[in-house]
Amino acid sequence: MELVPVAIAALSALLSVVATYLAVRSRDMLSAAVFSAAQSTAYALIYYVLMAPDIVLVYVPVSVGILPAVTVLLIKKTERYER
């Protein structure tokens, strides 16, 4: 029973590694922003199952709310595909 939070955190960390790799390798910048949001969601689950809800309370608005907004605004001002 004590191993359940550790197992959930390990699976979520594996998912965040996959999302980070795809965000780095992607040629489409908008797709990279979406993958970065997926990585933020996985990190929120890790912080939650390790019993730190106050960090989730700060991490989620910054990393799901503000970071994709700034990234999408930058992509809109410049260009979408990487050359």
């Binding site: 908008l30 949001a37 929120a44 939650y48 809800p53 989730v56 989620v60 608005p61 994709p68």
Partner: peptide, 21 residues
Amino acid sequence: PLMVVSGLTLALWIYALDIYI
């Protein structure tokens, strides 16, 4: 029971990604 606030925060902020994209 006080850990429920992070669920509320996540449910209300994940909606913003839809609107941006």
